[in-house]
Simulated scan of single mutants.
Amino acid sequence: MKTTIVATTFAATALAVPALDALVQCPKNTAQPDGNLPASLSNYVSPSLLLQISAKEPNKKFAGSNTAEVTPGDKCTIFNLDIPVKASQNKVCNLVFDFPAKPTGLVGDLGGDLVVDHRRPGHGGKAGEGEAKHGHHDKHHARLASPLASSLDYKFDGPGNFKFIGYDIGVGAVAGETTYADQPKAGPSPPNPPAKMEPGHSYVINSGNCEFPANLTSVKVSGALCSNDTTLSYDQGFLGTCPMGFYVVLTDVAK
């Protein structure tokens, strides 16, 4: 009987995204006033590559991954983001880090991670509809993970002090080649990053007018997340129904 109840609960919850939404309040920031990503896929950018580097193994070459990993004084993760120039014209580029709290009452009770369709109204509705309406849906979501893959867990241990390292515009990490000893050319780092990052919050790491040359198709921006005292490991994408990780959110220029 218990097995039947658990299986029924899992099936019902996996199909009822609004029920999960009711349990999870996505943290907000000035670029995400409702805590969600913009309804239009052209108004935000997901990382095209996550790549780890290691200070303790400075010449080790890592493969690209969907998992970001930061460990004290050792592993950092580099993020590449390809900004579409046409969509970013006359827009503000907001580099955000979404760090929702873990949903409660689901992990363990269901015996594993819950798989849901994370797309909200405006993201295509029913499963499969997003791909039909937006030919570039995979460009933003599925380059790193299936659009139906949502995690309900991550690892976070420490006071939450992180360092943001910026690389030169147009230069990014290369999977299987970039190492700690051979990082991309240094560029401007965020001038006023948050002093700490903790679960249950969403942070604007940097914000400014995009101002990319109109003759380009896209511009690669990249940077690394490191820490001297905190462990963080998570899957880039969605934590249940909340965005998790780095994104560039495009907003209108204030008038």
Results as ranks from 00 to 15, higher is better:
residue 214 A to C: 06
residue 102 K to P: 05
residue 160 G to Q: 05
residue 209 N to L: 09
residue 231 T to F: 03
residue 81 L to W: 00
residue 160 G to W: 06
residue 176 G to M: 06
residue 68 A to Y: 02
residue 200 G to I: 06
residue 210 C to F: 11
residue 220 K to T: 15
residue 41 L to K: 06
residue 84 P to D: 13
residue 224 A to K: 03
residue 249 V to P: 00
residue 248 V to D: 03
residue 180 Y to W: 14
residue 241 T to Y: 01
residue 237 G to M: 08
residue 209 N to I: 08
residue 131 E to I: 08
residue 138 D to A: 14
residue 171 V to N: 07
residue 224 A to D: 04
residue 199 P to T: 03
residue 231 T to Y: 05
residue 168 D to V: 00
residue 117 D to G: 04
residue 113 D to P: 06
residue 31 A to L: 03
residue 227 S to G: 10
residue 222 S to P: 09
residue 217 T to P: 05
residue 76 C to L: 01
residue 242 C to V: 08
residue 136 H to L: 15
residue 116 V to T: 13
residue 247 Y to E: 05
residue 11 A to W: 11
residue 68 A to L: 14
residue 14 A to T: 13
residue 51 L to V: 15
residue 248 V to K: 01
residue 4 T to Y: 11
residue 224 A to F: 01
residue 109 D to C: 10
residue 158 G to A: 05
residue 70 V to Q: 01
residue 237 G to H: 05
residue 243 P to F: 07
residue 24 V to E: 06
residue 23 L to I: 08
residue 251 T to Y: 08
residue 123 H to S: 10
residue 50 L to M: 08
residue 158 G to V: 05
residue 149 A to V: 15
residue 79 F to G: 02
residue 160 G to R: 00
residue 235 D to W: 07
residue 120 R to N: 04
residue 12 A to S: 15
residue 205 I to P: 03
residue 15 L to E: 09
residue 247 Y to P: 00
residue 232 L to C: 05
residue 173 A to V: 04
residue 115 V to G: 07
residue 116 V to Q: 01
residue 225 L to I: 09
residue 142 A to W: 08
residue 229 D to L: 01
residue 106 L to Y: 11
residue 120 R to Q: 11
residue 155 K to G: 10
residue 117 D to S: 11
residue 33 P to T: 10
residue 26 C to N: 05
residue 188 P to V: 03
residue 92 V to Q: 05
residue 36 N to E: 02
residue 43 N to P: 00
residue 55 A to I: 10
residue 91 K to R: 12
residue 252 D to H: 05
residue 17 V to N: 04
residue 201 H to S: 11
residue 80 N to D: 06
residue 168 D to P: 02
residue 191 P to V: 04
residue 95 L to K: 01
residue 229 D to W: 01
residue 209 N to H: 07
residue 166 G to M: 02
residue 168 D to H: 02
residue 172 G to F: 04
residue 131 E to K: 06
residue 153 D to I: 05
residue 4 T to M: 12
residue 205 I to C: 02
residue 34 D to T: 12
residue 31 A to I: 06
residue 180 Y to N: 09
residue 71 T to F: 06
residue 254 A to C: 07
residue 234 Y to R: 04
residue 77 T to S: 04
residue 6 V to M: 15
residue 174 V to W: 01
residue 115 V to Y: 09
residue 3 T to E: 10
residue 18 P to W: 05
residue 161 N to A: 06
residue 98 D to C: 12
residue 236 Q to I: 00
residue 176 G to W: 07
residue 144 L to T: 14
residue 158 G to P: 14
residue 96 V to I: 09
residue 251 T to M: 09
residue 105 G to I: 08
residue 109 D to Q: 12
residue 85 V to L: 09
residue 37 L to T: 00
residue 117 D to Q: 03
residue 245 G to R: 07
residue 73 G to I: 07
residue 137 H to N: 11
residue 212 F to C: 11
residue 102 K to Y: 03
residue 107 V to Q: 10
residue 129 E to D: 14
